[in-house]
């Protein structure tokens, strides 16, 4: 019986200490990790999206609370106007969530461009959502005021052949981004202006 108690006490203590240490570490390193993700995961996608912008969109960002979660918005300045705003939305693909950075042209209410940030899709099939520029180009100039579908579902967006589920996931992420944009448009435009001034 004493053995039993000792076993339980030792394991409990060890696990508690471990949990405490890891929670502290998470707290201490969280912001730094966030920053690194910004530079190495979202950075390249943002740079490709905002080609030709007059500012550095990775640095000009603001945060809004969307559906109870803090979301970063990145602002691109074109012709002196902070007209393009990009933010990330998620859709579920074949192997988990797909993160899609959606850039919206706020003057025309249309999609300026999209880029996949994180995914765990099948290499060579679904992974082309990130690497095939033709797929991303299919979203350009779509209106953000209506929702979209891939061609196999009777919509207008070209799906990746052999990766319909992934394509649906990306479209779902874009639709979610549209919803976020519609619900928060005034705030987004206002914040972008304030940032550019």
């Amino acid at each position: 019986m004493r053995d039993m108690i000792k076993m339980v006490v030792v394991i409990t203590l060890l696990s508690t200490l471990s949990g405490g240490l890891l929670a502290y570490l998470q707290e201490a390193l969280g912001p730094q990790i966030e920053q690194q993700k910004l530079v190495f995961v979202k950075g390249p996608v943002l740079e490709a999206l905002f080609e030709g912008a007059e500012n550095k969109p990775v640095d000009s960002r603001f945060k809004l609370t969307v559906d109870g979660e803090e979301t970063s918005f990145f602002v691109g300045v074109y012709d002196g106007q902070p007209s393009v705003v990009a933010f990330e939305a998620y859709g579920s693909g074949f192997g988990g969530n797909i993160g899609v950075m959606v850039a919206v042209d706020t003057t025309k209410d249309e999609i300026y461009g999209i880029g996949v940030t994180t995914h765990s899709e099948t290499p060579g099939l679904g992974s082309r959502a990130k690497t095939d520029p033709a797929f991303a180009a299919g979203f350009r100039h779509l209106s953000v005021l209506e929702s979209h579908k891939v061609k196999p579902d009777g919509g207008g967006v070209d799906a990746l052949s052999g990766a319909t589920v992934t394509s649906r996931g990306v479209v779902a992420a874009v639709n979610k981004a549209d919803e976020i944009y519609k619900a928060h448009k005034d705030e987004i435009v206002q914040q972008a202006k304030a940032l550019a001034l």
Binding site: V10, I11, L14, S15, S18, L21, L22, L25, Q26, L29, Q32, I33, Q36, K37, V39, F40
Partner: peptide
């Protein structure tokens, strides 16, 4: 064995977090 695994797993997560923070690539 359970205790060893708890100890090892803790340090692995420490490494993972530190690496994410300072050597992300």
């Amino acid at each position: 064995i359970a205790c060893f695994i708890v100890v090892i797993a803790t340090f692995v997560i420490v490494v993972e977090q530190v690496m994410q923070a300072f050597a992300y690539p």
